[in-house]
Amino acid sequence: PDGVVVLPAPQNLSIQSANMKHLLTWSPVIMPGETVFYSVEYQGEYESLYTSHIWIPSSWCSPTKGPECDVTDDITATVPYNLRVRATLGSQTSAWSTLEHPFNRNSTVLTPPRMEVTKDGLHLVIELEDLGPHFEFLVVYWREEPGAKEHVKVMTGGLPVHLETMEPGAMYCVKAEALVKAIGKHSAFNQAECVEVQGESLPL
């Protein structure tokens, strides 16, 4: 009808995913002097195959103000997900805009993990950042010497973990990569860090 402003649907939907955190973003709908709200809904492969009429409201963004939505808690399987957004202003709602390509969490970008390598006396200790329940870390450590033998441990993050009992007078180096079993992928290794232990070598 004449004079009634039809609320435009949000445009430019896109999703950025890093370290299993998935952020859906879109261009805001500008209505001068007004606050536009948005609702986000999702549909996994199951819903689109078996119950295509079913869309599920996002955990944190139905409704939301921002032109973005953290959908991490909604994407809970390694299958393609459809995502859609619409704008709401008072009683007006826009059409739905749907993400052009379904999103699968196996496309997330895994970054080399941050780590802190310390020693407690002769004990080599590592603490890796806590990236959430999906993450394990493959830690490789070795004693810096010709023909060094690499040792491997898999551990979780968020707590200092004992790696090795070191020998005085030796240098030990550590590197780690992030592992995510849910998507069967791993990050690149981070930069190796080394620590040296004072004192002479141990009596044989």
């Binding site: 006396g121 002769l122 004990h123 200790v125 973990v161 004992h162 009992t165």
Partner: peptide
Amino acid sequence: SKKMWSQCVTNNTVVLTWLE
């Protein structure tokens, strides 16, 4: 040293050597 560290184990014996 006021430092804490942990170890995840499956066997029943852990020997911490070269302590202070």
